[in-house]
Amino acid sequence: MVDIWNGISQAVWLMLTLDPELVEIAARSLRVTVTALVVACCIALPLAAFLAVQRFRFRRAIIALLNALMGLPPVVVGLVVYVILSRSGPLGVLGLLFTPTAMIIAQTVIIVPLIASVAHQSIRDLWAEYHDLLISMNVTRWQKIRTLLWDARRALMTAALAGFGRAIGEVGAIMIVGGNIDHATRVLTTAIALETGKGEFGLALALGFVLIGLAVAVNLSIHWLGRTERGDRW
């Protein structure tokens, strides 16, 4: 128990003094996950809108695949990305393994299906509502997609935040492809795993509090967005 209390007080101290190591790790976590999120949204949101408005042969199959991929264990994603990026792998020449870029790739792969799937559902509902009007107005496919993405933006933000939450808290995949290298690829989750293993509860807890803080902030935002979506102001 004494250890734990020491750890907590040390954690508070580290946060209050903005300990450089803590700040460095938290900043890297944010940078990796925010980048992964931006990339994932650029892929997932247009894909979701396209799947909603366009009938084509493999549409149902792609939707089913996305739903299946949503449940993919991150460790497996990490393994696959590792194999692809490893020196003898197809993209080995890029030398990306054990860099933040590798972690961004892994996180992107993990959250694209989640974001696309959630976004597709809300865009599909909106499309059902708008269908007759937009067809009557003879809008182009691109205008259709833009209109749907814009008018569903609240729901899409919720989808994106869910993706962020999943990516920032993920440990298995980025441990494998990032390697948890000090001052290079160490992020909140991998550092917590390491420090806990070493018995360094102070730093581990401080990192944990930051992570919890981020998670809570994300969930509050989702909740708040969900409420304003039903209200008539935005």
């Binding site: 708008y130 007759d132 009007l133 009557s136 107005m137 003879n138 008018d151 569903a152």
Partner: peptide, 16 residues
Amino acid sequence: RHEQAFVFQRPVMLRR
């Protein structure tokens, strides 16, 4: 097509 418009029995409101 661009010179026509259609008003539905149940109006469709864009969420705007």
